[in-house]
Structure formats: C-alpha cells, structure tokens
Design a protein around this nucleic acid. Structure first.
Lengths: 128, 128
DNA sequence: CGGTATCCGCCATGATACTG
DNA sequence: CAGTATCATGGCGGATACCG
C-alpha cells in the first residue's frame, strides 16, 4: 500500500480532506469533553445547518470516529460520542484550531499589507 | 475580539478552513524542507492543476505564510518559501497528515462494516 | 426531538488556450 | 518556466417541507 498523501492514488488523501473539512474539525472538537445530543451540537456550532450537521455526523459514524446511540424515550434522544479512533485525532485538530485562534489577527494584517501593495492595476508592467 | 472558532462571526473560522483546506496542507508540508520552485511543487503534489497550485500559493502569500521570490533569469525562476508564520503551522498539519496515513486502513474497514450493516432499505422500520 | 427528502443557486475546481 | 484568462460543470451547502 502507498500510505502517502502526496500520491494521487492513495486513499489517505481523501481521509485528510475529511478530517480537515470545515465542520468535522469543529464537531470533533466539541465532542472532546464527552457525549453530546444532536441539538446540543447544533446550538454550539453556530451557523451549521441541520443538514450539514447530520451529514457530518453520518460521515464520522461511518468512518468509525463517532458512535451514535439512540435512547427511545419520548421525545427521542440521540447521543454522539467519540470512539477511540476519534479521540486519536483530537489533538492535531485542537492544535490547528488553536493556531487559527492565535494567529488570525497576524494574518489579517498580512492581508491588508498585501492588498495595499497590489491594487490590481497599479505599477504598470509589474511582472507577475 | 472573539477568538473562538465556534463563534459564527469570528474570522478565525475562515482561517481554519484555509489551512485545513485540501491543497494547503500538502503545499505547506512540501515546503517544510526548504524553498521550492513552482514546477517542483507541481510535480510533487500529484494531481494538482496549475490553476489550483497558483491559487493556493497566492492565498498563502497573501496571508503571510509563504514568500514568493522571482529570479529574473531566463527562463524565469520563482521560488516559494515558508515564512516564520508559515513554519508555525507545519507541526499541526504534519500531525494531521501523519494521522491520515496511519489510519486510513482502519477507516476503510469501518466503512465496509457500516455499509454492510445498512444496505439502505434493510431491516424494515429501523428507527433512524 | 431528530431526523429525511427535494429543490436549487452558486462557487470551487478542472480543462483548455494563450502570454511575458 | 510560470503564470493569466476564460469557460464549463458538479457538487457543496442553504432553504424549505414533511415524517416517526
């Protein structure tokens, strides 16, 4: 087997996309402290649609990172919890979230500088 | 400022999307060992289109993670290199790539099991 | 409560052609 | 070599309605 994200055929590239994808990193992060109900997750992940939350959770369940447990009470109650495999990816993801939170102001400044220097049509014939 | 990826308005969420996005993780990873030319990157990141490579590099440059240096030789030569900010994110990204490479077979098995258990219309009236 | 089903717009991405 | 420009498209993701 290939086991190399730089190889075109290696399926692990798809896996990298998956765990790094927008909502996955947030869902997993929110499950770090323990099981959560569907509605709890929806409330805490501001801006996620019901559809995307369902879809994200299904993918995570299918991939073995999360378990889904139904308690047939009335009203229905469903809890999601990280598996051991799921817990094994929390650290790298937490590091990434933390990096984003620590550095977004620096990045915002870099953007300003960059955009000021290149107002699209300025400096005629600047090679690019 | 908010500094919380779980908040809808916090711009750091967009930054998380950026560094976690498909090609970004691979480009940054390949720049870990030192500067690279455009064509080198293109060769090493199997399957990336010229357009996506350019776009990814532009974004990284604009966000201050990468520098772009033009050597006006003939033929033209352009080198990309990580900035200090860029280097600060290599570790979490490497951890994520490594996780994907270590675990994709486990995940593949989990998928098989899951798909076998739920052939869409089986087990009539299984609550879901 | 915790979903599924359907419709649909829009943008990310790829393919192709051309340029300095 | 290292791009830019343009066009085509597929699927991501939101909105809405309905179900057990």
């Amino acid at each position: 087997m290939i086991r190399n994200v730089y190889s075109k055929e290696c399926p692990c590239r798809g896996l990298l996309d998956m765990v790094a994808s927008r909502w996955t990193a947030l869902v997993i992060g929110d499950l770090e402290d323990g099981p959560r109900r569907f509605s709890e997750l929806k409330k805490r992940l501001e801006g996620i649609s019901q559809k995307m939350l369902t879809q994200t959770l299904r993918t995570l369940e299918r991939d073995g990172l999360v378990t889904r447990t139904v308690y047939p009470s009335v009203p229905l109650r469903v809890e999601y919890e990280l598996t051991e495999l799921g817990r094994s990816v929390t650290e790298p993801l937490a590091a990434l979230r933390s990096w984003a939170q620590r550095n977004y102001e620096t990045v915002a400044e870099a953007r300003e500088t960059f955009d000021k220097a290149e107002p699209v049509g300025a400096e005629p014939a600047t090679a690019r």
